[in-house]
Design a binder for these strands. Structure first.
Lengths: 224, 224
DNA sequence: GCAAAAGTGTTATATCTACACCCATGC
DNA sequence: GCATGGGTGTAGATATAACACTTTTGC
């Protein structure tokens, strides 16, 4: 068995973590997580959390390590690979391949000082080609909302149908018809009734949960 | 600007090239291209065409190089990245990341001796994790047929609607209704009439061409 | 004239879209 | 009792799915 040529590349993972901003009532607006770069290149700019992949570590382990390490995020509820960015000049220090991931997670109350959440529709200037990676993440998420149960990644275990609808509206950026939305998610069996109600200064709302807590691709589509 | 840590990884591209077998009449059955491995590991087995990425080369250039180099394929009509496979043990010689691509191309009359086309539904045992990569390619292609014009990658510049339908049927593995299929692709404007007819021992058929020769995601769906 | 594929419309069914009011609660 | 969000049904329009025969050519 002939040996392999010498290793020539660095491989990193970069993660777009999307969560919902809890300010205000209902499901908030979608935000994504960045870290401030302490050093050149792009010192002071914001960048996606990322790390070089260690020799014996899988890509997913590297993602979970960086999310655990740094900003104090819980394990993401959903994680999927997006794409690999490999232009020879994407890092001015030398060639680094970036395998990018989309993570969906509940938003923790606090992140450490060097981390910050940004609204997806108003991102800051980002280091490297990270703006393109965030774009890819949003396109993926928006697409998958209609034909999968991927929204489970953004919601707690139980939630009301209005909260679910608010997630769709926040991510897609436009309103949906309440009756049609409810009819469809119930008919598709994406969610099932859970015990209990959400109470507030108004009529209590029935709680639901996702039937599956991993990605399920639907046969039919939720009209968006 | 602090230097990067030493390079620790090898990065390869592996390509699933899908074409249509021309034996018989109409559009043939989908086949994919493999090369026979001359050396261990997996000596004598079939593997996807692939190559290590060179230091100054983009991922796509590496793909085009390996397709040009080897089996005498024309430039693919469609090329898209699939996913990156990075398990630490996927190559017994040492760690190699594989960035996989889906290529669609017309099938050349001849490929060199060490290359071979296989029907997608009856692949041989494949080296490494290449069976999983072929799976991903097929799932991607099947999905995209219904909501994009990706079939342009499998067809010549002009073709009849029956040939287009045969491509769909061959890739999806089930028959479609002729009248409904024609109505839909014409209504969506995916194809437009071209000059000329295809003649044979029967009534001549109008030729069509794709309106766009790059990937277009459709608003509506071709029912499949 | 016969075999082979091209081409073409309609109807019943299902789905989608748009839309407005009453209900249950907290205060 | 009032403000707030929760919850529900229908009708018209649109899209889908199923279906068979005539046309044009080569031989």
């Amino acid at each position: 068995m002939s040996p392999l040529p010498a290793a020539e590349h660095r491989v990193a993972v970069d993660v777009v973590t999307i969560a919902l901003d809890e300010t205000g009532s209902g499901a908030g607006s979608p935000v994504f997580l960045t870290l401030r770069r302490p050093r050149d290149p792009f010192a002071g700019d914001w960048a996606l959390p990322g790390t070089l992949v260690r020799p014996d570590e899988s890509l997913e382990s590297a993602v979970l390590r960086i999310l655990g390490d740094g900003p104090g995020l819980p394990r993401p509820r959903h994680l999927e690979q997006l794409a690999t960015f490999g232009g020879p000049r994407r890092d001015p220090r030398g060639r680094v391949f970036s395998v990018s991931y989309l993570a969906l997670a509940p938003r923790p109350a606090e992140v450490r000082r060097t981390a910050r959440w940004w609204p997806v529709e108003a991102p800051p200037p980002l280091a490297f080609d990270h703006a393109a990676i965030v774009d890819a993440a949003l396109r993926r998420l928006r697409g998958k909302l209609s034909y999968s149960n991927v929204a489970y990644g953004l919601l707690p275990d139980t939630f009301t149908l209005s909260e679910l609808q608010a997630v769709y509206e926040a991510v897609l950026g436009h309103p949906l018809d309440k009756r049609n939305f409810r009819k469809k998610v119930l008919a598709l069996g994406v969610v099932t009734e859970a015990a209990g109600q959400r109470r507030g200064p108004h009529r209590p709302a029935q709680l639901y949960r996702f039937r599956d807590t991993e990605l399920v691709v639907l046969d039919d589509v939720i009209p968006v």
